[in-house]
């Protein structure tokens, strides 16, 4: 076998191979450069940056900018650092991700295993929700939040993200459950399991891979959202992204670039972390053995 694959593989000489790797290396350097700049400059005192030499490694190594960005930098009018807004973001993202994923899973379950009249039309409409631009819903959403008494609260923001996310999560779970063997559902019905028991005991335990996809997608999108945060949150419920903008925009004396860099990394860290942690469970093959294989 090994012989055969070698014969059919594209043969590349040593020189071509070196060239390919060189180009790849160049590209990766190009892409990693911004991260380097942010990291290097967040770890040096402000004088080193203003003195020129953005590309240099820090001569005096300091974590002061990180501490300042986290706990004492000027955000708008308050010298609170990013900390309270970080928690605002967490309080918004966690419920929004969980609720939208669970609802998406339920929708997917009903749309594939409990078919009803016009279910494909309903699904089509939900898909349409994925493509509605944010800007269109701003004003009606503001009005709705006002009517519900949720304007300017973290809960209101979470609700907005749940509603906006359901289209995507439904799409994921519907497509995943569409190939889930219906015989399993029928076997569970004969065994006497009810609607939610089937969902909870049979379907959900087999949904690992798609749940991870949905969680990564929702977490990244909601955490990184700026427009909804800027539109619907007040000073006390602002998420991290809006606070970061205010940190950078606050003009009291000098621009502390090192603090800005540190703040930007802080704001990006959770999404990176989620991807690294959850990505490990991004595995296939959980369905093995249920049916003929």
């Amino acid at each position: 076998m090994a012989q055969a694959t070698q014969d059919t593989a594209i043969r590349t000489g040593r020189i071509t191979r070196t060239l390919i790797y060189l180009v790849l290396l160049l590209f990766s350097l190009f892409y990693l450069l911004p991260l380097y700049v942010m990291l290097a400059n967040s770890l040096k005192p402000l004088e080193e940056i203003t003195g020129g030499g953005m590309m240099n490694l820090p001569q005096v190594f300091t974590v002061e900018p990180w501490i300042k960005a986290w706990s004492s930098a000027q955000i708008g009018v308050e010298p609170t650092g990013l900390r309270p807004y970080f928690w605002n973001s967490i309080k918004m993202v966690v419920p929004a991700v969980i609720v939208s994923t669970v609802l998406g899973a339920l929708n997917g379950y009903v749309l594939t295993k409990w078919r009803f009249k016009y279910d494909t039309i309903l699904f089509g409409l939900m898909l349409f929700a994925c493509f509605i631009p944010f800007q269109i819903v701003l004003i009606p959403m503001a009005r709705m939040l006002g009517l519900m008494g949720l304007a300017g609260t973290t809960w209101g923001l979470a609700l907005v993200h749940v509603v906006y996310g359901i289209g995507f999560t439904t799409l994921y779970f519907r497509n995943y459950y569409a190939v889930f063997p219906t015989e399993l559902i029928r076997a569970a019905q004969i065994d006497g399991a009810g609607f939610f028991q089937i969902f909870w005991r049979i379907l959900l335990p087999s949904s690992g891979p798609i749940a991870v996809v949905s969680i990564i997608w929702q977490f990244t999108n909601i955490w990184n959202d700026f427009l909804f945060g800027a539109s619907f949150a007040d000073a006390n419920s602002q998420p991290m992204t809006v606070a970061l903008n205010n940190l950078v925009q606050s003009s009291t004396g000098v621009k502390e670039y090192n603090v800005h860099f540190a703040g930007a990394i802080l704001a990006a860290l959770p999404t990176l972390l989620v991807y690294i942690v959850a990505g490990r469970y991004f595995v296939r093959g959980l369905m093995a053995g249920s049916v003929k294989g």
Binding site: A187, G192, R201, A288, G289, S290, K292
Partner: peptide, 16 residues
């Protein structure tokens, strides 16, 4: 589930 029947499926349909 209330018919007191049991069924063996072509694909076995074992809960994975």
């Amino acid at each position: 589930s209330n018919r007191n029947i049991a069924m063996v499926f072509q694909s076995y349909a074992l809960y994975p």
